[in-house]
Write a protein that binds this DNA or RNA. Structure first.
Lengths: 190, 190
DNA sequence: CAGCGTTGTAAGCAGACGCTTACAACGCTA
DNA sequence: TAGCGTTGTAAGCGTCTGCTTACAACGCTG
């Protein structure tokens, strides 16, 4: 646990290797989900030997947990509640250059079980918890779950199924329709 | 291609074996999706040797195609357009004893590619096409896609993620909220 | 500089996967 | 009843999976 040099051009840098694995895993888990990402792919993208993945993280599931723990709460912490829905919607509609891919990872790992399922559950609960603060209806949490479900469904049908015209539609048009419909769900009564 | 005896208690009955494989595959594909269902599981549930699966269907993908082709268009043919959304919604909310699991299969196979992806695409297009007849808005098809996306998202979050309170909510409550919100999407301008 | 923990590499293990092959048992027809 | 196509079985092929092991290279500390 001594101080580590930060200069580039290094070899034998455990911290850099860990980070490379984390970055590679975040990218691949978001693109393919947990099951369809192999430890060999992650190690190859990170440019390191695959056995190091197990040395530093113990298992593929533990790596997944580390990835989600890092990226999952970033958007929640960075986005005010009243903008979370539209921000997340736009984030999923615009695949390019989005730094936060927590929901994408969530979606593409929806078939997995084990620890991956547990983590998915927690991420979903946190998003829904924030969305629930947007309405004062007695069933606020159910409404929030339904809104989140729509988000996931749109991303599912658009990015995974490629259903037209949704897949090629203008994000603005989608936002307009969805936000109009969710007004009855998430607005305050006052 | 001669006539086949239909009496029970038979052995060496190719038609019955084919049907057993089809039934077993339909059940498992709906429950686990394409990738997570193995040909060994299908053959075991059908009570036949797994090599017969390849004799009668050629490949796992071809079996999937046969399953979808059979069950996919049943609900579409049996349900009038104006009831398709609520019927499908209730069908997905009530997992027990539902004869039609086309959308469930669609959902749980969302991670697969290859022929499975193509078939998914077609099933989605057919559902959306019917839903699009419910509104006379110029962007009717986009609205239909969004409605279908909500269906899929609700099923995803409810049955796969198990997010509460959605997962344990009364189907009636869900239907009420969702149908109220989709009124702005799918109603006619009369 | 000797010793030793740390970082990295190469090879391989056991199991699961889709699919194929070789062959046995059955039953129709000539 | 002899022949032959059909139905079913058992075994295994090649590949991929997550994960482990054995070992080499490095660099700090005594």
């Amino acid at each position: 646990m001594t101080a580590q040099s930060e200069e580039p051009g290094r070899k034998r840098d455990a911290a850099a290797t860990r980070q490379a694995l984390l970055d590679a895993a975040a990218k691949l888990f978001a693109e393919r989900g947990f099951d369809r990402t192999t430890v060999r792919d992650i190690a190859k993208l990170a440019g390191v030997n695959q056995s190091l993945l197990f040395r530093y993280f113990g298992s593929k599931e533990a790596l997944f947990e580390a990835v989600i723990a890092r990226s999952g709460r970033e958007q929640l912490a960075a986005t005010p509640a009243e903008r979370l829905f539209s921000t997340s919607l736009r984030s999923m509609l615009d695949p390019a250059g989005q730094p936060n891919r927590a929901l994408e990872t969530y979606l593409r790992s929806s078939g997995s079980d084990g620890v991956a399922a547990t983590i998915r559950h927690e991420v979903g609960r946190e998003y829904a918890g924030v969305l629930a603060t947007l309405t004062d209806a007695p069933d606020a949490e159910l409404r929030a779950d339904l809104a989140l479900a729509w988000l996931m469904g749109i991303a599912l049908v658009r990015e995974i199924s490629g259903l037209e015209p949704l897949a090629g539609a203008d994000p603005d048009d989608i936002c307009r329709l969805v936000l109009a419909a969710t007004k009855t769900l998430l607005e305050r009564s006052e």
